[in-house]
Amino acid sequence: MPTPLPKPSRGPLLLMLCLGITQPVLAKAPEANAQGFAAYGKGDYKKAHALFEKALKQDPSNVYARLNRARTTTLLNQGKEDAADFDYCTFESNWIYLALADLSKAVELDAKAILPKIDEDTQGLKALKALDEYKKWRQAISVLVEEKGIRQKVLGTTSDWWFLRPGELPKNITLAADKRVMETLQDMTEQPAGRWRPLGSGVEITAGKEPARPWKLEAGKYPFDQGRSFYFEVQLLPGEGPQPEEYGWSTGPLRLGPLSGDCL
């Protein structure tokens, strides 16, 4: 006769029933961001990138997945901006702006947790940090989190700003070291347009014959990809005071950010 199979022990089953457990306990699988970071640590950036994207589909507010996707976006695309066929001004496919968008959203959600990790990164974001676009973006973050000495970090002795008027070519406005405000004309010549001086954390600007007005530094958002993404930029906004009679650069805002003038 065949040997009968041993009966299963009732001990574990009774214990599960006593604990209210009706299904076998399975080890929880690592979430997508953790899996991606493991792949990132092994140098498999393509796999890591896909896992970070999966993590963000599951939870768009995962700041660490956003930081990590910015890292793999940089590592997978660095150097492409130097190619002749690189479409710099199509932001939704430009890796530089995609990475900055992820960093911007992460900082917006939890600057205290994520900004030190961005500043300390010397591997994943190395190529991005070498670009002027990143350096201007980091100035905007200095304004956003109100870092000490933000006026000097942003303005220095000379700073160049864009004034964007709908339907017109952008104007370049320079706050020069000699405290003159210079306007660059369409023929690329410059003309004096006023005076400026430091004031608090911002500046005071006298535009032409207009009364002097205080201007403040703020971190604004530049949206792209039909508003689905954004990056931070510095904006110089006029404060209280008499309004200019004509619409022009002195109505503000003046903008300083990652965006290249060639794309305006």
Rank of each mutant, 00 (worst) to 15 (best):
T73F: 08
G208H: 05
Q58S: 10
L264N: 12
P244N: 02
L13Q: 15
E31P: 03
S201F: 06
C89Q: 05
A130M: 08
R180M: 15
I114F: 01
P238E: 09
C263W: 03
I141S: 04
A127T: 08
E218C: 05
L185R: 11
L67S: 04
K135Y: 04
T22P: 08
K46C: 02
R138W: 00
T189S: 14
P30I: 07
Q123S: 15
G252S: 07
E133L: 06
L51P: 02
Y64N: 09
I96S: 03
E168L: 14
E168H: 15
R66H: 01
Q123R: 14
W196H: 02
K80L: 15
P166A: 14
L100M: 05
P24T: 14
P24L: 14
K136N: 01
Y64I: 15
Y45G: 03
Q235I: 09
V203Q: 01
K112T: 03
Q186E: 11
W196P: 00
R138K: 10
R255L: 06
W137M: 04
H49G: 02
R197Q: 14
A84D: 01
G220V: 12
K216R: 12
G79S: 04
D121L: 04
E92M: 06
L103Q: 06
P198W: 04
F230V: 08
E108T: 08
L76M: 09
K57E: 10
G11K: 10
K148Y: 01
A113P: 03
G241M: 12
C18E: 14
Y97A: 08
E108N: 08
W196A: 00
Y247L: 15
L103A: 07
W137S: 01
F230P: 10
N172E: 14
D82Y: 12
Q35M: 12
E218M: 09
K209G: 03
P4W: 05
A193D: 02
F163S: 05
S93P: 06
M188Q: 13
I114R: 00
T72L: 12
I21G: 11
R213E: 03
K117F: 06
T251R: 11
G202I: 07
K105W: 07
P24F: 13
L199D: 11
P12C: 11
D59V: 08
Q78D: 09
Q243P: 04
L103Y: 05
E53L: 15
E246F: 03
S61P: 06
E245I: 10
L67C: 05
A48K: 04
A48V: 09
V143P: 02
A219M: 04
L199C: 07
G257S: 02
G194D: 05
F86R: 07
Y231N: 06
D110Y: 04
G149A: 01
A48L: 12
N172H: 15
L264T: 13
Y231C: 05
K221P: 00
G248R: 09
A29W: 00
A176P: 02
D87R: 13
L17S: 13
K216A: 07
A99D: 00
A176W: 01
V25S: 12
Q35P: 05
V107T: 02
A127Q: 11
T158E: 12
L103E: 03
V107R: 00
V203E: 00
Q78F: 07
T74Y: 07
W249V: 12
W137P: 03
L26S: 14
E168W: 14
K179R: 14
R255A: 02
K129T: 07
L75K: 14
